[in-house]
Nucleic acid binder design. Sequence first.
DNA 1: ATGGCCAATATGATTGGA
Length: 263
Amino acid sequence: MLVATWNVNSVRLRLGNILAWLAERSPDIVCLQEIKCVDEAFPREAFERVGYNVAVHGQKGFNGVALLSKAPFDEVSPGLMGDDSDVQARFIEAIVSVKGGILRVISLYLPNGNPPDTDKYSYKIKWMERLTAFSRERLKLEEPFLLAGDFNVIPAPKDAKSPGNWVNDALFLPKTREKYHALTNLGFTDAIRAVSDDPGLYTFWDYQAGAWPKNEGIRIDHILLSPQAADLLKSAGIDKHVRGWEKPSDHVPVYVDLAIEPR
DNA sequence: ATGGCCAATATGATTGGA
């Protein structure tokens, strides 16, 4: 069973690319970020026509996350616990029935946090603390459980072509990486790092300054696996070639193959 | 030459992204 995540940078502008990639990869579940539209404007029918159920948590203009699933959703819950005043659409949780049990999946868009000397950075850090508190609760359930999305965190120097360019950036500051490790140390497995220690595994290339042709990439889109999900990991990968398509997103899809059969 | 982008919005300049 394939589960993937992709920050698409506008689901409406990227619809053709997304449908082409779905036909090529045929994932069972897809976590989308930066859909950049309200729920009513999400191109739901285009995905239903090719066999997906749709769950959306959008907002006007920016942010927004969604889930696609070939199997129906048993439960869907938008929003991250811990701050009722947070109106940014960055989190959606769902449960899907699979053969022999369930799979719990989160599509998340962690705040960027730049510039670091502003309230944008404190919002990022607080959001990470809320995500850790949420995860601590969910891990107690001992289920196959995935946190997938755009984490806006470069975990280690080898996750950037030029780490020196990022030392003062909210994506790579020591405090950001400390908070990320506080999350992963609860017991998550980084799916990509479980299958490869190689440098040069990137998921984002800026539109600016020729980042793509120079391969100036960073790895910021992650799939974190609960212990029960990690036990099922068969393979993981990054669909890098999608960055070279016409009108690309600046991010590419990341996927895991789990030893689970659809129900 | 040592910079270069993109998307959404009561839009033709601003905001956010990373």
